[in-house]
Each structure stands twice: as structure tokens, then as C-alpha cells.
Design a protein around this nucleic acid. Sequence first.
RNA 1: GGUGCCUUAGCUCAGUUGGUAGAGCAACGGACUGAAAAUCCGUGUGUCCCUAGUUCGAUUCUUGGAGGCACCA
Length: 305
Amino acid sequence: MPTRTKTLVVIAGPTGSGKTDLGIAVAGHFGSPVVSADSRQVFRGMPIGTAQPDPEQLALVRHYFVASHDITEPYTSGQYETEALGLLGKLFEKHDIVVAVGGSGLYIDALCGGLDAIPKGDPRIREQLVARLEKEGLQPLVEELARLDPVHYEKVDRQNPNRIIRALEVCLQTGLPYSSFRTGRTKMRDFNIIKTGTLMDRAELYRRIDLRVDKMMEAGLEEEARALYPHRALNSLQTVGYRELFEYFDGRISRSEAVELIKRNSRRYAKRQMTWFGRDEEIRWLDPLQPQAAIEYIETMLKKS
RNA sequence: GGUGCCUUAGCUCAGUUGGUAGAGCAACGGACUGAAAAUCCGUGUGUCCCUAGUUCGAUUCUUGGAGGCACCA
């Protein structure tokens, strides 16, 4: 096995926990760029609601996958794996250390361990399945999956339309069961990975989230959302902070209700992130407000490898 | 000061003809392989304001108190 001299430092964690600042402190210290692993910050036109690093922060450290894609592009975790891996190859030509910062657990897993080579869904097949779901309900689709892929049928969450449709579209498209693509193996990367996460007291995190939503509103989130309203059906806008404001624009809820819902949904999102990252035993949990301690930990790990 | 009503989960409240209680929201736990800030599953977390009675048994009835609201002074 070749000696791996390059290292990816991962900073994961829930929304609002201080990943961006910590990432900049760490990357700044090592003279590294930051590769974002965030399924919403990749998009252009939504800087406030997705809490992208601001221009000042972007001037300090080079960032990738921030405002890099158009909202009309149906972005996926698989595409992210390919693009981020390609980019890392280039970045490692000039840097020994690259920092990945992000809250999308699936994206981080795709980057660190890889996704299986399962075909991306054909949009037409997906459309048909969604239409059937709306007309016939979930049950017929579940039964079809039981026929086409009894193995996956046993394991899958049969009440989750997204999972059923995804598995079915692969079966229909390839003529092979979805489960036959699942290897259960993690891909070996040709770089070292130091995985860290931002750990924060729950009450403190929620306070910060609530405060940040108020600041987003002051910074013009409403106007940002209004400009995106025509695109509200896009997947990129199925996003906390926008959906709630769209409801307000539609007259379904008041402005202050929208703000409260954004806070609540951000808290729930943070909780889901904590559940995801909590089961990753490779993550070393660090205090995001102590960048110096984080840097020391990373340096210790670098010496070991 | 007087009269009436109220006090039950984090919040708003329901309820128990006396057998220690339940809704909504909030919250909490979990799942997750190309939609993942998405999607889905699960869970009541409680000095029933305090006190003394009546009672086998009081959150429920009675006495006294505390706090709140309304009206009358």
C-alpha cells in the first residue's frame, strides 16, 4: 500500500454550531482550502438562508462548493462524491491538508467512504413513480418492490415514499434489484482522514439557532426568499428558511409564524444531524469555540499518521 | 376591602359521579447509499398550587392559605 501523505480534515456537526468559523481557523492555520460538504450551500442565490460564509470569511480562506451550482441543477450526493473527489485530487497537488466542513451527513459519508455504484435515477421514471404515488398511494409501490427486490423489501422503511421510489426506479431502470448494487463496503481513499465534529450543549445550540434566524431576517432573508419564490418547487428550495417564508407569501401563515417555524425546523434539523453524526464512531468531538485546542488535536493526529 | 371564577405536562387547556390523569403544540429518541436542510418511524416527560379535614382511598368534596383574572367598592 502506498504511503498516504495527504490528509483530509473533516469538521462535521449540526447547523449553527460554529463549523464555518472553526473551519476557517483550522484551514487558516494550515494554509488549506475548505471544501464544503453541505447540500444547500452549494447553491447560488441563497447565501443568507443557508448561512454560507460571508464575503469577509471567503476572503480569508478559499472555499469550494459554496455557491458553486445553479438552483435549477438537480444536485445529488453521488454527483458531490465525484466532483469533490476530483477536486481533492487537484488540491492535494498543492496542499498536504484540505479541510472539509459540512453538515450533510450523507455528503460527508460519500466523500469519506463513497457511495455504491448505483445508477442515478432517470427523471422520467421518477416522475411516473411520483405520479403513481399520488394517484394510488404508497401500498401498490411497496408491493411492486416486494416483487422486484424481495431482499430490499425486507430491509427498507416501507412507509417512506422516498426510499420506496428510489429503490423502484433503480429496479425498473436497470432490470436488476436495487439491493444487488449495495455492497456494504467502504471505499478506500488514497488520503488520510481525520474526522472531527463540533460538540455543543443542546440548550446553547438552540439559543444560537434562534438568534441566528433573527439575524438572517435582519440581513434580508425575506427578500432573498421572495426572489426565489418562482422556483419554490425545485428540490434546492425544499430548505428550512425558504419553505416557511413561501408559506407566508402564500398567505397561509403570518410572518412571525414563519419565523417561529424556521427556528423550530432548524432545531429539528440540527437534532437529525446529531443523530446521524452520533453513530459515527470515527468522529472526535471538539469544542467549536476553542479553535486552538482543535488545531492541537489535529496536529497530534497528523504526527501519528 | 367584598363577591365570583381560575390554578393539572415546557405552553394552551380537557378530565376524573372520589380509585394518582390526557389532547394539541413544544420537546425527546431513532432510521438513513444519487431528493438528505429531503423523507420516514417511535416516545407522555406530571408534588394535578399549598395546608388541614372527611374517607379504606382526595388531583376531584370541605376548611384555611397563596397566586392570577374579572366585577363591585
